[in-house]
Design a protein around this nucleic acid. Structure first.
Lengths: 231, 231
DNA sequence: TAAAAAGATTGATATGTATCAATTTAGATA
DNA sequence: TATCTAAATTGATACATATCAATCTTTTTA
């Protein structure tokens, strides 16, 4: 009997910095020489879709979203807690620009690594390259799961999914601080702010969650998981 | 003034086999020793989500879809014409299974390369690894575009997108053979069969396309492109 | 060639969810 | 503290699109 396949909208990988394990001390020093660390305030743009991709980023502290945008719309591809890497999809041949935008949800610290230094390590260290392949492959699987989630589940399932992701993968707390607005949550779950409010209220009425002004607590993990899986 | 950003649902990369350019003659021979070529009939499953990923595949002739499936639903991630590679996202550490299924739309020929042979080249040839990175990165950008398209555009835009993709990227013919059923088209555009029929009829009435029993012709590329972009 | 099955079309209806508009609440600023 | 602004909530409505059901067409099979 095949085990049931479950896709979720969460976007956090297992070992987000494993590539750096493959570097020698000299190579790590080389990275450090070719990088700077920058502080960003809440809401600031870390990288802008279409702008020159001069660096690979490591989110060292904070929380950020990665998203696509066009004139009318935006689509959140991932939300990323620290520590995580941003910008690997800019690494393809003949590409010079960031394929997505990134913005902080809270004050954050980010290390910017010169992309040419990063690329030179890829061509000189096959194990490092192997880890980058692994990370890109895993990322693709994660994004595909989110893709499935957003296209096939309806609003209740998607929002349940977001809440579970925040509790289990981002904050790793049943009761997590609410640093995101309803608008943020709505955008992540790809729905309207009004629907987000209504569904949160419903979840609260049904005893699935407790909502405070500055936190949300998962009260009934099992039922919320059911909702997220049924869709 | 920033140029308008356009996402589409098409899923064909620029140089899908470039990694093999980086191999020496011995390495190519090594690949050949560790691969077999298999013929598939229309509708056959090439690889099954969740089954052991024992090989990387090269679609040498034919047309296939790559899709996610769970108990109730399926999501087409890409449609792939020959020549293209299938299975790179299986390459991440600690993973043993295919992260998606693939199935042919027509009789197809596929080369199966032993995944361990493939991985050994990645660790021994950094340029090869670099190209794999490039391909995975490009793939991720392509999938993200399709993700945006399916979540943000509505039915008319999505179907226009599929038709344009078939004409421009898959068949490279304004008038292309219709080897896909309405059900196939509906699945690719992530909508019901009935909506697909209705929209095709509307496009025909409006003079945007000509629909024959065995082909579709793009008559008004400009307006169809507008529809696909507006959504 | 007839019969059966599969695919495509058309119309009527149901439903999930966005949108619009009006309040209410909370937070920031003077 | 009062005032202003942004965020959140609530209700009413509109709309896109799926679903259901019936018919028609094409293809396959006997």
């Amino acid at each position: 009997m095949p085990k049931p396949v479950v896709f979720n909208g969460c976007s956090v990988g297992e070992n987000p910095l494993c590539c750096f394990d493959e570097l020698t001390e000299e190579e790590i020093a080389f990275i450090d020489e070719n990088s700077v660390e920058v502080e960003y305030k809440r809401g600031e743009t870390i990288c802008k879709q279409g702008s020159f991709a001069s660096h690979i980023m490591v989110l060292k502290e904070g929380l950020a979203k990665i998203y696509l945008e066009n004139a009318n719309d935006s689509l959140v591809l991932k939300i990323l807690p620290a520590v995580n890497i941003i910008g690997l999809p800019a690494l393809f041949d003949g590409n010079a620009v960031f394929p997505y935008s990134a913005q902080t949800y809270m004050d954050s610290a980010i290390k910017l690594i010169d992309i040419n230094a990063f690329k030179s390590l890829i061509t000189s260290n096959a194990k490092f390259a192997g880890k980058i392949i692994s990370m890109l492959a895993e990322n693709s699987v994660i994004i595909n799961g989110r893709f499935f989630c957003l296209t096939k589940k309806q609003t209740y399932g998607r929002l349940a999914d977001v809440l579970l992701c925040l509790a289990q993968r981002i904050y790793k707390l049943d009761k997590f601080p609410l640093q995101l607005t309803r608008k943020d949550l709505a955008e992540i779950a790809s729905m309207s702010v009004e629907s987000t409010t209504r569904i949160l209220t419903k979840f609260k009425e049904d005893g699935l969650i407790a909502v405070n002004s500055d936190s949300i607590e998962i009260l009934d993990l099992e039922r919320l998981t059911d909702i997220s899986q049924i869709g």
